[in-house]
Amino acid sequence: MEVLLFTILTLCALGVLAAVVLYFVARKFRVEEDPRIDEVEKMLPGANCGGCGFAGCRGMADALVKRDDISALFCPVGGSACMKSVADYLGKAAPEKEPQVATVRCGGTCAKRPRTNEFDGAASCAVASALYVGETGCSFGCLGYGDCVAVCAFDAIRINPETGLPEVDADKCTACGACVKACPKGIIELRKKWPKNRAVYVSCVSKDKGAVVMKACKAGCIGCGKCAKVCPFGAITVENNLAYIDPQKCKLCRKCENECPTGAIRLVGMEPLPKEPKAPAAPKAAPEKPAAAPKAAEAAAKQVKAE
């Protein structure tokens, strides 16, 4: 009995002692923090994806509370709605950004881009890219080992086993930009997100000359510039043998897609324009065409919007 009592008393004494020590330590080392940080953190999506540039949502919340001007901060996951509610809570001006989606700019499927060798190293795009050209003859194209897939926190990007290329699920993609950073070839770009996930983009990043591109891949951009000529909005530029469609200027008229000889320009969520028969009186109509074309295109773009 005595032993039992002694044991219980000792344990109780120890417990009290520890509690007292903890209390004083907690008082002494207490960190004063703005309570609003906790509140803001709760408003953020909590994905901790790093898309905002901070290590996690807490870091973002801290910055949102402490900075006076938060126009440079944006949570791609929560989007404008989330930023607005945070800004309202803090009484600051809400940063705005149009929604974006990760876009994989390579069309070199297994069928279009023949394999010339087999990579036997660690299955990582970064490893293969540091070593050599890749399993195909194209040194710019997708390597297909899925570094982008590995970093995606939202399960929004997957390798299609048939094409060997990653595909983005636009509904899941939050445009956090993790895949953009992970891709050693710089193939993935954040582009403007249209309604119904529509998109028009050049699905190639090869800066090789046309002949070299064609040798390696049947779906590459050869820099012929036909698309740039036909674009009514001046959205397409050709630089270093590569066409680029500016997402801010493009209105999804789809004219370029009809012109592209290799199919490097890709449409998503839209049918291609019907192929017009070659205009018989082309030389005559030439001076008028530039004026007419934007109209037609505007109409097409409107139609797209209306849908």
């Binding site: 010339t116 060798n117 087999e118 990579f119 036997d120 050599y132």
Partner: peptide, 8 residues
């Protein structure tokens, strides 16, 4: 031949 490639 099938060419195999890997880092050293």
């Amino acid at each position: 031949n099938k060419f195999i490639v890997s880092p050293a």
